[in-house]
Amino acid sequence: MNSDPPRLLDDPSASPSLRADLARAADARLEGLDLDAGLERLRTATRTGSSGPSGTSLATKLAVGATLAAAAAALWIGSRDPTPAPQVATAPAVSAGPSEAPSEALEPIVGEPLRSVRTSSELDPAEAIGSTPVDGGEVDPTSPASAEPEDASALEDGSEPAHAAGAANRAELADGSEPADSSGSAPDDPAPRARSHGRAPATQPAEPSVDDVLREARMVAQARASLAKDPSRALELTEQAEEEFPQGQLVEERRALAIRALAALGRHEQARRRADEFLARFGRGAHAEAVRRAVAPEAPAGEAPAP
């Protein structure tokens, strides 16, 4: 570290205009990123439990592969561990499936199949910057399986607050069995495994089909995209989603969008009424702040479209 050269920015031998430009670039800030919405999307993606039209995709093959590998591992390990192959099989399925959903959902908007990105960015080491990364737990379920049991608790602790602030669509899952999936990164995570065991049969029938999840996500994404330019379209989409997916995965987000759209359309009375309901239920969620801002008496001009 000591041998690091001085940064160009601080290097008196570099040209002054170069240094000045670099200083400005280093100082620049990010504009236009909706971190809250991104976080919510990430949460949804990491916890939706179904496996998708991707069913035939690599994700599934990985899950199957993981199952086989785990079964083999179980044979090796013998009977020491009473929570064998099925757990490992559950975990990758859980973590792989949802990630497909939002990616697919956004295709119409972005127009690019993220799915393929995902798989190869994980599986194509040739693309690495010449690295030998510690890659995908899903590909090699055996090594993590034995490695870091204490991570399980760390993982859960870390994600607990997120749940508290989480979305309504998870309310029904708040029986304590869900954190397994949601924090659920690691297939190597013993605690979630044990729990997802008991959970699967109970919740599976209630789970929406992947098509529904995708369509809902798509609708909400479109609503979000049109909020600024065409709030009435945004409102229409959220209402359509409300009708089609009363038990949807993105209730919180779409309702927040609806409120913001109403506010943007100048329908303040309605917006406020819905906001009260919304905040009572999701007052600590990722969208609460945006909703409060939208219905604040001195609503900032940015929320409403120019008349």
Partner: peptide, 29 residues
């Protein structure tokens, strides 16, 4: 990020920009 980005760049060609999509940019301090 590097992987995801180079992968995306390889695999797909951008379609025409959708003006409705949120755009992220670097802005001066």
């Amino acid at each position: 990020s590097f992987r995801v980005f180079s992968d995306r760049r390889k695999k797909s060609r951008r379609k025409l920009e959708d003006a409705d999509t949120e755009t992220i940019a670097m802005a001066p301090s």
